Simulated scan of single mutants.
Amino acid sequence: MKHLRIIARLDIKGPNLIKGIHLEGLRVVGDPHEHALRYYRQGADELLFIDSVASLYQRNNLSDIIKRAADRVYVPITVGGGVRSLDDVSTMMHSGADKVAINTAAIARPQLLTEVARRYGSQCMVLGVEAKRIAPGKWEAYTDNGRERTGRDVVEWVREAVERGVGEILLTSVDQEGTRKGFDVPLVQQVCDAVSVPVTASGGFGKPEDIAAIAATGVSAIAVADALHWNRMALAEIKQHAVAAGLDIRTEVPSP
């Protein structure tokens, strides 16, 4: 039975938890710390924090938010957005992150992926991919919250990244993100087929049937934001639907 992790995704801008559509038109949701604790207590398998404007301003401001979360949360924490160097990775790890997701800086200098993997282990090095469909069955990797084209084919890029030492892929469909219209299943399928490392699908989760649709790809995890932030579905309900789809799910929740 395929095991599936349910990851709560929290996109951060300044002090606020925010949510957009296609990574744009951001709306403030609330205090990221309160939401992170709530999702942890509801049984999230991991937490994913993304600094949504970090690449724009060439910095990551999440260390204080991560420190607060790491004191109260006992599941893996992944941090992404504006991570550009080994020093940035070190800051995040010392703040309490277990993994770092790198997108923009990896496109600019792919050797960074190898450097991080060698120093901290492949399990720490997550490749962040913002994918946009450019033709049937073909996707291009974007950076800066889906704004900047890279010219890199997504499938070729993830293959290269894994060869360079990446231990996990965070795959965000910009086309589906925030739409509630379901995951980009063909995209996820191609990436899962191309690499042997765990893949997290992000962008588009809207209804229970979406879990069964994505499960068949061999994906390792799904990242959920919109459904949780607007209280459309609790984590327990999402996990029930995953079990109904024949998936192996961690069902215990932390003690209050």
Rank of each mutant, 00 (worst) to 15 (best):
D45N: 12
K132D: 03
R9E: 13
R41A: 11
I77W: 01
K132I: 08
S63L: 08
G121Y: 04
K67G: 06
K138G: 01
A212W: 01
G14I: 07
H35C: 11
Y57A: 11
E160V: 07
I66N: 01
R152F: 03
P32S: 04
A141K: 02
P15W: 01
V162C: 14
L112A: 11
A108H: 10
T114S: 14
R27G: 00
A216I: 04
V89Y: 09
V126W: 10
L113Q: 04
I18L: 05
Y40R: 02
E177Y: 05
E24H: 11
G206A: 04
P186W: 05
I6M: 12
A227G: 03
A161E: 10
L187M: 04
R59E: 12
K2M: 14
K13Y: 12
D144F: 14
Q189N: 01
R180T: 11
G146S: 10
E46A: 14
E24P: 00
V154F: 02
T251K: 13
T172P: 04
G178C: 10
R109F: 10
V185C: 07
K2I: 09
V158W: 03
L37V: 13
Q240E: 15
E160M: 14
D88M: 10
V219K: 04
P136W: 02
A135S: 14
M125F: 05
M1G: 13
G178L: 11
G151E: 04
V155E: 12
T172K: 06
Q240D: 14
V89S: 08
I21Q: 10
I102F: 13
D184K: 07
Q176P: 00
P254H: 06
S55H: 05
I50W: 07
A221G: 09
T150A: 07
A70T: 06
H3Q: 13
Y40M: 00
P254M: 05
V199C: 05
V73F: 00
D226V: 05
R250S: 13
S122W: 08
T251I: 15
R59C: 08
D31E: 07
S85Y: 01
L112E: 06
H35S: 12
P110N: 01
R118W: 01
L23S: 07
E209N: 08
V89N: 06
T150Q: 08
E252C: 05
I12E: 06
Q58W: 00
E237R: 15
H241L: 12
M233Q: 13
N61S: 13
P256N: 11
V28S: 08
A117D: 03
S55D: 15
Q190P: 00
H33E: 01
P208K: 09
A44H: 06
V191T: 02
L112W: 08
V224S: 06
R9L: 14
V185H: 10
